[in-house]
């Protein structure tokens, strides 16, 4: 393999993974659509969806594997590195906007929709005619009391522990980051492993919390607007923590294999940044979903 000079830009050829990704996504969503449309019928296993997921997993390893190989082969100069950075930043920004839609829904429901159903402002007729006697409180499962009475997860219980876990993990990854800048590989790896463990523990407790909500509190996706916003926000966050944890594991393995240097560690920084992003989203969740 030839090294690439500073005034060239490495353009890969014959990219086979994008089309694999398209096929994988396509099969996944077709499988999901068919499954969703047969939810009311007898339970079926969505094999097509699983096949799609499998293709996507293979694709991720293949695609990123190729990129890592090229990176280790010194095909990426500073210029390519800058493109990756710009790409990662705007990708995370788009993720922020995705969460903004759900936080926006929570805000709208609490500030406008629920008070209006209770007759606030010029909406007295709505309350009297349609939902007579409905008192707009938060949390609520709506004037029709959908899914029956429920209780909420106390902010002092598992959410507190989880906040502590994620905050600690962002401290440990920052220590690892400093250690990498100081070229202390062993220290970096140790603190990365700590971060992975903290992330995994967070996920474990999040699952515990869902089990608790479904089995003992009667708080489900169907519990009106509270249940919907609660599970969609925490659920999508949990999904991102899962992806982030997998990314952390990959980065840790790469560190053990000797990848990254003090002055060349975009992969590490991108994942660290992603982790900070899921941590801040959690902080937002803790404040707006559990506490306030």
């Amino acid at each position: 393999m030839t090294e690439i000079s500073e005034n060239q830009y490495y353009v890969p050829h014959k990219a086979k993974w994008p089309i694999v990704a398209c096929v994988g996504l396509f099969i996944t969503v077709i499988g999901a659509s068919l499954k969703f449309n047969s939810l009311d019928l007898e339970p079926t296993t969505p094999w097509l969806m699983y096949l799609g997921f499998a293709i996507l997993i293979v694709m991720f390893f293949g695609w990123f594997g190729e990129v890592i190989k090229e990176s280790e082969a010194k095909l990426y100069n500073k210029h390519v590195d800058a493109s990756f950075r710009a790409g990662m930043i705007w990708f995370i920004f788009s993720e922020v906007m995705f969460f903004a839609a759900f936080f926006g829904a929570l805000f709208y429901a609490r500030t406008f929709a629920v008070p209006w159903l209770g007759g606030e402002g010029t909406n007295l007729a709505t309350n009297v005619q349609l939902w007579s006697g409905y008192e707009p409180v938060w949390p609520t499962n709506g004037p029709a009391d959908l899914n029956g009475r429920f209780e909420t997860i106390s902010a002092f219980a598992l959410p507190l522990v989880n906040t502590l876990l994620l905050l600690t993990s962002s401290v440990t990854i920052t220590i690892a980051h400093h250690a990498l800048l100081a070229n202390d590989r062993k220290k970096t790896i140790i603190w990365m492993i700590a971060t992975v463990l903290l992330g995994a523990t967070f996920l474990f407790y999040q699952v515990e919390e869902y089990i608790e909500a479904y089995q003992h509190l009667n708080l489900t996706l169907e519990s009106g607007i509270y249940g919907a916003t609660f599970f969609m926000l925490t659920g999508f966050h949990g999904l991102h923590v899962t992806l982030g944890t997998i990314m952390l594991i990959v980065i840790t393995i790469r560190l053990i294999k000797g990848h990254f240097k003090a002055d060349n560690h975009f992969g590490f920084e991108a994942v660290a940044w992603y982790w900070h992003f899921v941590d801040v989203v959690w902080l937002g969740l803790f404040i707006f979903v559990y506490v306030l």
Binding site: F36, L39, S94, E95, M97, F98, F99, A100, A101, F102, G104, A105, Y108, A109, F112, A113, V114, W116, L117, L130, W131, T140, N141, G142, P143, A144, L146, N147, L221, E222, G224, I225, Y226, G227, A228, T229, F231, M232
Partner: peptide
């Protein structure tokens, strides 16, 4: 991404019983 969020809420409202856009459940 905001559109993606909006249609995701449609999806869960249609198939998983959420109430984002259902006044009976406190949505709108």
């Amino acid at each position: 991404p905001v559109l993606a969020g909006a249609v995701t809420m449609l999806l869960t409202d249609r198939y998983f019983g959420t109430s984002f856009f259902n006044a009976a459940g406190g949505g709108d």
